[in-house]
C-alpha cells in the first residue's frame, strides 16, 4: 500500500537520475506541494461548484498535477540547468537548498498547522480475498498500476520515449542525432512532477492529512526505494518501492516474532536498512540495476 506510493515517488527520482545523473533531493517537496495544492483546490472548488466527491477529487488532482508540473519545470530551469556542467555533488547542494526553500515557502503559504484532507471517497472497509481493504486502497493500487503502464508505454513505445532513452545514454550523441536535449530534460521533470502530484494527493487522501514537512521523509524513503531497485531503472523503481513497503510493514509487524521478542517494532527501520544493505552487498547495483561506473 505504502509501497505503491513509494514507487510513484521513486519513479520521479529514477527518471531524473537516469537522464541527468542527478539526485533531485527536492522531489519529495514536489510531492508535498501536490498534496497541499489539492487540499486548497478542494477547499475553494468544493463549496463553489458543489461537485460530487469523486469528481471534485479528480478536478483537484488535475489542478495539483498542473501546479507540480509548473514547479518541476521551474526547478529544472532555475536550479538545475545552470549546473548541468558542474560537479555532481554541487547539483546535490542545489537540490538540498531548493528543498529547504520550497519547504519554507510552503510553510509561509499554507501555514504551519497540519491540514486535514477531506474524505471524498467511500472508506468503508470490505473483505476481499480474506483481507480487509477499503475503496481508497483499491483506487490507489489501481491508479499506481495505471500510471506505471502509461509510463512504460511512453518510455518504450513513443518517439519521445526513444529520445529520452537516447539522452539518458549520452546527451552529446543524442543532440547530434537531432534530439533537443533541453526539451527532453524538461519533459522528464514534467512527467516526474506529475507522478509526484499524483502520489501527493494519494498519500494525503489516504492518511487524511498534509503538512509542509511531509515531503522530507517520503522523499527519503522513495530515494531509498529507487536505489534498492537500481537507480535510473524504471521497472526497478517500481519493484524497489513495492519491496520497501513490504519490508517496512513486515519489520513493524513481525520483527518481534522473528527475533523471539528480542527486537521490537522500534527496530523496524533498522530492519529495513539491514535488508537494503544486504541486497546491495550482494547486488551492488540494486535489484534490477545494471552495472554503472561512476564517481562520487
Amino acid at each position: 500500500m505504502l509501497g505503491s506510493i513509494y514507487a510513484l515517488v521513486a519513479l520521479g527520482y529514477t527518471m531524473v537520475y537516469g537522464i541527468l545523473g542527478l539526485i533531485n533531493f527536492a522531489h519529495g517537496e514536489v510531492v508535498m506541494v501536490g498534496a497541499l495544492v489539492a487540499i486548497t483546490a478542494i477547499g475553494v472548488l468544493g463549496p463553489a461548484t458543489g461537485l460530487p466527491g469523486p469528481l471534485l477529487l479528480l478536478v483537484a488532482l488535475g489542478v495539483s498535477v498542473l501546479a507540480c508540473m509548473l514547479l518541476g519545470a521551474l526547478l529544472e530551469r532555475v536550479a538545475y540547468r545552470p549546473l548541468r556542467e558542474a560537479p555532481r555533488l554541487t547539483a546535490l547542494i542545489t537540490a538540498i537548498g531548493m528543498s529547504i526553500v520550497i519547504q519554507n515557502l510552503a510553510m509561509l503559504a499554507w501555514g504551519r498547522q497540519y491540514l486535514s484532507f477531506p474524505a471524498l471517497l467511500p472508506n468503508e472497509p470490505m473483505i476481499l480475498l480474506g483481507a480487509t481493504v477499503t475503496g481508497t486502497q483499491l483506487i490507489i493500487v489501481a491508479l499506481t498500476a495505471l500510471a506505471m503502464v502509461v509510463l512504460m508505454g511512453l518510455v518504450n513505445r513513443t518517439r519521445l520515449g526513444r529520445a529520452m532513452r537516447a539522452t539518458a545514454q549520452s546527451p552529446a550523441l543524442a543532440s547530434l542525432m537531432g534530439v533537443n536535449v533541453d526539451r527532453i530534460v524538461v519533459v522528464t521533470f514534467l512527467v516526474g512532477s506529475a507522478l509526484a502530484a499524483l502520489a501527493g494527493v494519494m498519500v494525503a487522501g489516504y492518511y487524511g492529512q498534509a503538512h509542509y514537512h511531509m515531503g522530507f521523509m517520503l522523499g527519503l524513503k522513495a530515494f531509498t526505494a529507487a536505489v534498492l531497485g537500481g537507480i535510473g531503472n524504471i521497472p526497478g523503481a517500481m519493484v524497489g518501492g513495492l519491496a520497501l513497503g513490504v519490508i517496512e510493514s513486515l519489520g513493524a509487524g513481525y520483527i518481534g516474532a522473528l527475533t523471539g521478542g528480542f527486537l521490537g517494532s522500534h527496530y523496524q527501520d533498522v530492519f529495513a536498512f539491514a535488508v537494503l544493505v544486504l541486497v546491495l552487498v550482494f547486488r551492488p547495483s540494486g535489484l534490477l540495476g545494471e552495472r554503472v561506473a561512476d564517481r562520487a
Binding site: Y17, V227, I231, L276, V277, L280, V281, P284, D294, A296
Partner: peptide
C-alpha cells in the same frame, strides 16, 4: 561497502547512520 559506488554507497552509509541513531 567496498564494492559499492556513488549513490549506492551514499544510501548504505545513510542507512548505517540511521541504524546507529536508532
Amino acid at each position: 561497502t567496498l564494492r559499492l559506488r556513488g549513490d549506492y554507497l551514499a544510501i548504505v552509509t545513510l542507512g548505517f547512520g540511521e541504524i546507529i541513531r536508532i
